[in-house]
């Protein structure tokens, strides 16, 4: 079984910081305010927060690919 994998599209990111606020262990913002992925494969105890952050991102810059849930 493969672990869920995150992607972040920095061209779409508008630097609102929802991800860094919601899942600070998984996301940060660089000096330009754009998303930084700290854990592309978040450990199990951060997955719920990561999933929440993906859903909250205002610019659809984040995606979570979960093979277990049938995502590619």
């Amino acid at each position: 079984m493969t672990a869920p994998r995150l992607t972040a599209d920095r061209d779409r990111c508008i630097g609102a910081g929802m991800c860094a606020m919601t899942a600070p262990e998984v996301f940060d913002q660089d000096d330009d305010g754009l998303v930084l992925l700290l854990h592309p494969e978040p450990p199990a105890d951060h997955r719920t927060a990561a999933r929440l952050a993906v859903g909250l991102c205002p610019s659809a810059a984040l995606a979570l690919h979960d093979p277990a849930a049938g995502d590619p």
Binding site: I14, G15, A16, G17, A20, M21, P24, D28, Q29, D30, D31, D32, G33, L34
Partner: peptide, 11 residues
């Protein structure tokens, strides 16, 4: 907006 976002980050 771009030059501003780095000034208003969570951190």
């Amino acid at each position: 907006r771009k030059p501003l976002v780095g000034r208003f980050t969570v951190r």
